[in-house]
């Protein structure tokens, strides 16, 4: 391959990031978070054993179902929340009827929950920590001048940076799975890869609970799908931060803007479904694993293909803006 080639350019970017030890910071945060969650799980299990004398998931699930029923019976709950509760109730009932434990104890289940909870906030946060200054850092250090007076076209330099974002997205995902498995297994045990799990719950057109698409998957397959969806979301967030990094020369401002995007997404999706056109916002489509679990979507009419399309369009738009700006701009 000719030199300068893309692999060499990516090696350069990896070298810059690696020497800033950002991945190590993310690793430390990950270990601390996972350790805390594992300990919390451990305490919960201990408490249940104390209360019930035994650890029977059927009893537990039955209790949760009763709890949902009680809440539904009480007056004054919002329509959206009622819908969510009904859906959740039916799902739990379905697990119970089919004698499948939705939370089979073990490290794989811990990974499943961590991915599901982390996909909208923690995993994107990691990629932002690593990637926020990938372009703006070069402005701040002045190295952009040296970088862009090389005999390499500007679009290739940005392409290398974007591919590096995707590479680090993969590394964040791998690190998350490995750390979750390693640490939570100490308490929860390391088996459960083949435990069955149900997927394919969905609301029918009329919003009713539909069972026709429900099927069981072995845990490992389910986790692979979860991790894949989480990868997509993290990569999209990485791409948006790349664009912001190109547009905003100050790294701190860039991180702030990205955090605002993330937090606004979480808030909006919990606040309300009345503003239906908000489903076209990129940050309302981050909870892809939701579709796998079969929870009711934040806004009616959203589905996995819909969300993937929205994410795809936004990603393409961000890349177009980033590349156009980066290749056309005068560098002072």
């Amino acid at each position: 391959m000719s030199n300068p080639n893309m692999v060499g350019l990516i090696r350069n970017e990896v070298m810059k990031i690696a020497s800033k030890k950002r991945l190590a910071v993310v690793g430390v945060i990950l270990v601390i978070l996972v350790s805390m969650f594992t300990y919390a799980q451990y305490r919960e299990i201990q408490e249940k054993i104390e209360k019930q004398g035994t650890l029977d998931w059927r009893v537990e699930l039955q209790q949760e179902i009763v709890d949902r029923q009680n809440r539904l019976a009480s007056s004054g709950i919002q329509d959206e929340f009622r819908q969510f509760l009904e859906f959740d109730l039916k799902q739990k009932q379905y697990y119970l009827d089919n004698d499948i434990n939705p939370n089979y104890p073990g490290a794989p289940t811990f990974i499943r929950i961590f991915l599901s909870q982390g996909v909208t906030l923690v995993l994107p946060l990691f990629i932002i920590i690593i990637m926020a200054d990938i372009v703006s850092g070069e402005y701040n250090d002045g190295t952009i001048k040296t970088l862009l007076s090389r005999p390499v076209k500007r679009w290739r330099i940005l392409m290398a940076k974007w591919l590096t974002v995707l590479l680090y997205t993969s590394m964040v995902m791998a690190a998350t799975v490995i750390v979750c498995y390693g640490i939570s297994g100490i308490v929860l045990g390391y088996d459960g890869w083949t435990a069955p799990i149900l997927t394919g719950f969905q609301a029918s057109a009329s919003g009713e609970f539909a069972t026709e698409y429900i099927h069981t998957l072995p845990m490992w397959k389910y986790l692979l799908m979860s991790a894949g969806l989480a990868w997509v979301v993290t990569a999209v967030v990485g791409t948006i931060s790349l664009m912001i990094s190109v547009l905003v020369k100050n790294t701190a401002t860039g991180i702030g803007a990205m955090m605002a995007v993330l937090i606004a997404g979480t808030l909006l999706s919990s606040i309300g479904s009345s503003w239906t056109s908000s489903k076209y916002l990129v940050n309302l489509n981050f909870d892809l694993i939701n579709y796998l679990e079969g929870q009711a979507p934040p806004i009616e009419g959203m589905s996995l293909p819909f969300s993937l399309t929205v994410l795809g369009v936004w990603t393409a738009g961000c890349l177009a803006v980033a590349f156009w700006n980066f290749t056309q701009k005068d560098m002072y």
């Binding site: 070298m15 020497s19 090389r150 005999p151």
Partner: peptide, 19 residues
């Protein structure tokens, strides 16, 4: 303007890959 957090040699190796 060079990468302060890299060594001198690493800087040169990096620029060499772009030539």
């Amino acid at each position: 303007e060079l990468y302060k957090y890299l060594s001198g040699r690493e800087n040169l190796q990096m620029f060499a890959r772009m030539l």
